[in-house]
């Protein structure tokens, strides 16, 4: 079948601002949105820029706004969205070209929350023990692929880009609730800051945007609650 796809294009060499381009593509209902982008790039306009790698929702490269919602282009099929299909870059980060945004500030926020295990105790020759129940407490937030779909769907982030954003808090959660970690307090101090977890206004956009099905808003709530336990 033929379908109409509109893509918000922007080329910094020639354009002052973005403009919509329309493409009519022969597509199969079972194809991914990413396949459509490849069709444009490979057989129509080679200059179309977007990130992608794994093509099955595990690397986090291709978060974009499709018909107004954040998603991974490789994880949604043509038959699941209405036509014409409108594709734009994720919001709140500077656009480099077409669907590619500058991710520097996103990764800087991630690095701010100490996203690594801190434990200086002598671990011994074998693995540390952890019960399946303790392991379960942070299972959900280990799934994050740093795609930025959550952060760039957040109305607070759009207006205050200094806010660390949902993704950073999710990655803090992953360690705060890990029984093996000893730096919760430091992490929570960071998140108590003006640009930390309390900026969240529980809009739930992040939870619906997350392609890994992480309960993002719940994770933020967990972190807020935990923050109140430190003095």
């Amino acid at each position: 079948m033929d379908i109409k796809v509109n893509i918000l294009r922007y080329n910094p060499d020639t354009d002052r601002k973005g403009h919509w381009e329309e493409y009519i593509l022969e597509a199969d209902p079972d194809e991914r949105i990413l396949d459509l982008l490849h069709k444009v790039k490979w057989f129509d306009d080679g200059s179309l820029a977007f990130r992608r790698s794994c093509a099955h929702g595990v690397c986090g490269s291709d978060a974009m706004v499709v018909n107004g919602e954040n998603m991974l282009a490789c994880q949604v099929l043509v038959k699941e969205v209405s036509t014409p299909i409108k594709i734009e870059p994720i919001r709140g980060l500077p656009v480099i070209k077409d669907l590619v945004v500058n991710m520097d500030s996103f990764f800087d926020s991630y690095k701010k929350v100490m996203p690594y295990l801190v434990n200086d105790d002598e671990p011994g020759e074998r693995e540390r023990l952890q019960s399946p129940e303790d392991r379960d407490r942070f299972e959900d937030t280990t799934k994050c692929i740093l795609c930025a779909a959550c952060t760039t769907s957040c109305p607070v982030f759009w207006t205050a880009d200094t806010y660390v954003g949902p993704a950073a808090i999710v990655n803090a959660h992953r360690f705060v609730f890990d029984s093996r970690d000893n730096a919760s307090k430091q992490r929570l101090e960071i998140l108590k800051d003006v640009d930390g977890a309390f900026r969240c206004r529980t809009a739930f956009n992040c939870t619906s945007a997350c392609p890994r099905g992480i309960q993002v808003t719940k994770a933020i709530e967990d972190v807020k609650r935990e923050t109140l336990t430190i003095n």
């Binding site: 295990l117 671990p123 693995e127 540390r128 023990l129 019960s131 399946p132 942070f138 299972e139 970690d181």
Partner: peptide, 20 residues
């Protein structure tokens, strides 16, 4: 190598006794 990854934080699935 596996033990080292665990020490660096890798969240392996666990047995009831807490081992990997």
């Amino acid at each position: 190598s596996v033990v080292e990854l665990e020490h660096w934080g890798l969240p392996f699935s666990r047995l009831e006794n807490g081992k990997i």
